[in-house]
């Protein structure tokens, strides 16, 4: 079933992609123009999508229950980390992110906090101080 759904999505996407590419036509310069290559890619993509609809592979084992839950939580943590990295600063944001992930993977909270502190301070020392890659200091260290 998953393959069939993906096949339909691919076919629809290929149609939209080709239609969108058609709007890039220009009447000067090289004969192929910016639309040519995308228009070349769309038909095989659409056909392969239809093939997957007709001849799907056996259903993969999707994760369920608490595994699915912790995967969803991981994605939420990562998105939050991406958004908070600049305003909060590297050290604090990383401390929170690593602590959350480590705790979720089965460590006790004090251990997870230790891991978070070690990772964030260690990475900051190594990359910002030693290698000179600027990381956002953020509120924790007064900007």
């Amino acid at each position: 079933m998953s393959d069939r759904i993906v096949g339909v999505l691919l076919a629809l996407f290929a149609g939209w992609y080709s239609w969108e590419a058609g709007s890039y036509a220009v009447d000067f310069g090289d004969p192929m123009g910016p639309a040519f290559f995308p228009e070349l890619l769309a038909p095989p993509l659409g056909l392969l999508g239809l093939y997957l609809v007709l001849r799907p592979d056996p259903e993969p084992e999707w994760s369920t229950g608490r595994y699915l839950l912790s995967q969803a939580a991981t994605v939420v943590v990562l998105v939050a980390y991406a958004l908070l990295l600049q305003p909060m600063g590297f050290i604090l944001a990383t401390l929170l992110m690593v602590t959350c992930l480590t705790a979720m993977l089965g460590a006790r909270l004090p251990q997870a906090l230790g891991g978070g502190a070690a990772t964030s301070l260690g990475a900051f020392a190594l990359f910002d101080w030693l290698l000179g890659i600027p990381l956002p200091p953020g509120i924790a260290f007064g900007g």
């Binding site: 958004l83 990772t119 990475a123 600027p134 956002p136």
Partner: peptide, 27 residues
């Protein structure tokens, strides 16, 4: 590994952040 894997995630973010310094890339 539960200490190691989040460390790998940290270095991934750090690397991508260092390219353009924005959260758009991270997302």
């Amino acid at each position: 590994p539960h200490y190691l894997m989040p460390g790998v995630v940290t270095v991934s973010f750090l690397g991508v952040y260092s390219v353009n310094q924005n959260s758009f890339d991270l997302l």
